[in-house]
Simulated assay, not measured.
Amino acid sequence: MRDGVTGPRHVWVGQSSAAEAARAVDEAAAGFNLRETCFVLAFVPKGLCLDEVGGALQARLGGLPVFGCTSAGQITPDGYSSDALLLLAFPKAYFRCASVLIEQLRPFSFSAIAAAAERQEVQFQHTAGWNRLALLFTDGLSKQEDLLVSTLETVLPDIPVFGGSAGDGLDFDETFVLQGGRFYKDAALLLIIETSLGFKGFSFDHFQPTDEQLIITGADPEDRLVFEINGAPAAQEYARLVGCARDALSPRIFAENPILVHHKGRYFVRAISDATEDDALSFMAAIDDGVIMTLGRGKEMIETLRTGLDLESTKRERPDFILGFDCVLRRLEVEQRQLSREVSEIFREARVLGFNTYGEQHCGVHMNQTFVGVAFFGPDGPGVL
């Protein structure tokens, strides 16, 4: 027990900030019961040698299935971290798992991906009384998450899919997904999970639409580039709408003034990563010519976070733990507002474990600047809440 907050009972958690891969893996896995573990999730910080991490995981965990990705930050039992190797070991008593590695996202093949997902779902024998969900980890620079999550939503209609795009700090350099001891680029990993635990999926952000609408009048959808908004150079028009000089555009301005798209009865964030020298805007989710979007404005972030994580089962039971996919742009805003300590405390109290992403997937939609989570409850409660 630590400051009145106990750790989760239904997942084992380990972390290490060691700079050497083998030591980090050894420290993070020290408390695991490998004989009773079904699979392990690994969220890998920037700076560790990936080949060495992969080899160390295979050697230390005795060949257990290991999945995960590189991360733009980690959510540990102590809250936010930037250099922690975070390992989550899921016990056989409560979890079963099957995986599909999609090794090539470009060019995107709907038929091949749909067939692979359907085949694995059918071959994965169902355990009576257990319920299924899916986790999706994707190369965060592949720009294929929108097509991928909508495909999976179509072919797995009875399985809720929750996902996060692999990250790499704010460098937007290289991102990878992990299966076994290998890291893959231009790839995605689908985990179909059965659990005896009750679970509840959710997502939230801290933005609300304004009355300011934008029409994309020139774009390259494949590369998520917008050249014109309302018939004007995109960066100049965006700067005018948010009330700043073109030269003042920055990650902070983009984080605090996102663009929203209305879909399935709610607004989702389409974040901007940067502005190019020729006044184009680079987006982190799908865009296209003719799309009507809305400028967003922020709400109170801390209160929104507390409310979003205030979850209970139908028996008024608090989550045992929450697996969280938290956008790196949310973390950037937290740090700029000097709220890291307060946010970390909220995560700690809610037992949130996970990583900072380059994008989030939920309800068949790829989005940004959003927290997507799966809250797991006790095994004696109802299944999908």
Rank of each mutant, 00 (worst) to 15 (best):
F199K: 10
K200E: 14
G201K: 08
G201I: 12
H206C: 10
F207P: 01
F207R: 03
Q208A: 09
Q208I: 06
P209V: 12
D211S: 11
E212Y: 06
Q213Y: 12
L214H: 09
L214R: 02
L214I: 15
I215R: 13
I215K: 07
I216F: 09
T217N: 14
G218H: 02
A219W: 08
A219I: 05
A219E: 04
D220E: 14
D220T: 02
P221M: 03
P221A: 05
E222T: 12
E222M: 07
E222L: 10
R224F: 08
R224N: 00
L225T: 05
V226G: 04
F227K: 01
E228C: 02
N230W: 12
N230Q: 12
G231E: 13
A232T: 12
A232I: 01
P233H: 07
A234R: 02
A234V: 03
Q236W: 09
E237Q: 13
E237V: 07
E237G: 06
A239Q: 02
A239L: 03
R240I: 01
L241I: 15
G243R: 07
C244F: 03
C244Y: 05
C244I: 13
A245L: 11
A245P: 00
A245G: 12
R246T: 06
D247C: 02
A248W: 08
S250A: 09
S250Q: 06
P251L: 09
P251N: 08
I253V: 15
F254R: 08
F254A: 11
A255P: 07
E256I: 13
N257M: 05
N257R: 07
P258G: 14
I259K: 02
I259R: 03
L260K: 02
L260H: 06
V261I: 09
H262N: 08
H262C: 04
H262D: 14
H262R: 14
H263I: 14
K264L: 11
G265D: 08
G265H: 05
G265T: 10
G265K: 01
G265Y: 05
R266H: 15
R266K: 13
Y267A: 15
Y267Q: 00
F268K: 01
F268E: 10
F268W: 15
F268A: 00
V269C: 05
